[in-house]
């Protein structure tokens, strides 16, 4: 079953582009990574799902229900953590969390204390006295306290120290094991790599590709580092499937996507001094997408 179904979603802010024809589905129980650089349209997509903004065209459904028409009902089941967190400055943390809980009919107040303990959050401080990282923790607790069926995270880890990031990821994994679906937006690929099962890549408002994270990491892409006895002609490795090519006299690095034998044949023609073939990082694959589709 699809928890999120987005179909040809388009949003223009006046004349400026938000997203164009974005379509993808997120299945129940998966952690879906949503990656792209700043300004690519991740937040626009997410804000449409929450009906904070209205699409120009296209549709989005959550749990089979239309995000705009049945938004109020849907939002019961969503836990949302925005990238920048802002709360009522003169409230105490506990009051803010209780206020948040009061919107959900089935919120369990004890969960506030559990989550605060896990995230090491002081409930008695005023919001305005909190550091950015601590505000983020309030955001995490407020997003999870009603045990949502779908968690939407928009660049959630900014401001959290590595220890807290790990606890946060554990929390998300924990919720995910209980069957919660997660939409995780980020421009930091290593964290997506750490936690997601599939990723959607968005660029300049358009969804470039949706892929299984394993496909991205293992099958197609190899990173080659080659050193030869003689200088390598610039166009020597100019062949289909090669990207991010850098030639520096006798050394060359590139990412290759395709039949490895073609490279092997190519290498056979010349004297190779050193050869390293490795799994490229998601960053590099990502870069590759960007250059190719640009």
């Amino acid at each position: 079953m699809n928890v999120i179904e987005i179909s040809k979603l388009t949003k223009f802010y006046g004349k400026s582009r938000g997203i164009v024809d974005v379509s993808f589905n997120v299945e129940e129980g998966e952690i879906f990574g949503f990656i792209g650089p700043n300004g690519a349209g991740k937040s626009t997509t997410i804000r449409t799902l929450l009906s904070l903004i209205y699409p120009t065209s296209g549709s989005a459904k959550i749990l089979g229900k239309d995000c705009i028409k049945e938004g109020q009902e849907i939002r019961q089941y969503i836990g949302y953590l925005p990238s920048e967190v802002f709360y009522y400055d003169n409230m105490k943390v506990i009051d803010l969390l209780k206020y948040s809980a009061s919107f959900y009919p089935n919120a369990n107040k004890n969960r506030i204390y559990e989550l605060a303990k896990i995230m090491d959050l002081d409930l008695n401080r005023k919001i305005e006295d909190l550091s950015y990282g601590n505000k983020k923790k309030v955001g995490i607790v407020q997003g999870l306290l009603h045990s949502p069926k779908l968690i939407i995270l928009d660049e959630p880890t900014g401001g959290l120290d590595p220890l807290m990031q790990n606890r946060f990821f554990e929390l998300i994994h924990e919720e995910n094991r209980k069957g919660t679906t997660v939409l995780f937006s980020s421009h930091i690929l290593s964290e997506v790599q750490k936690i997601c099962t599939r990723v959607g890549i968005i660029k300049e408002g358009k969804m470039i590709r949706v892929e299984d994270i394993k496909t991205l990491e293992h099958t197609n892409y190899k990173k080659f580092k080659i050193e030869m006895q003689e200088a390598i002609p610039d166009e020597y490795f100019n062949m289909t499937g090669v990207s991010n090519l850098e030639v520096n006299e006798k050394a060359a690095t590139f990412i290759f996507n395709g039949d490895i034998n073609k490279i092997v044949e190519k290498l056979y023609e010349r004297k190779v001094i050193n050869l390293i073939v490795e799994e490229p990082s998601l960053e590099e694959i990502f870069l590759h997408y960007y250059e190719k589709e640009a």
Partner: peptide
């Protein structure tokens, strides 16, 4: 202004 609209409007309320 206080940027709390996202908090409030992402709650299940019309």
């Amino acid at each position: 202004r206080a940027k709390t609209a996202d908090f409030l409007l992402s709650k299940p309320i019309s």
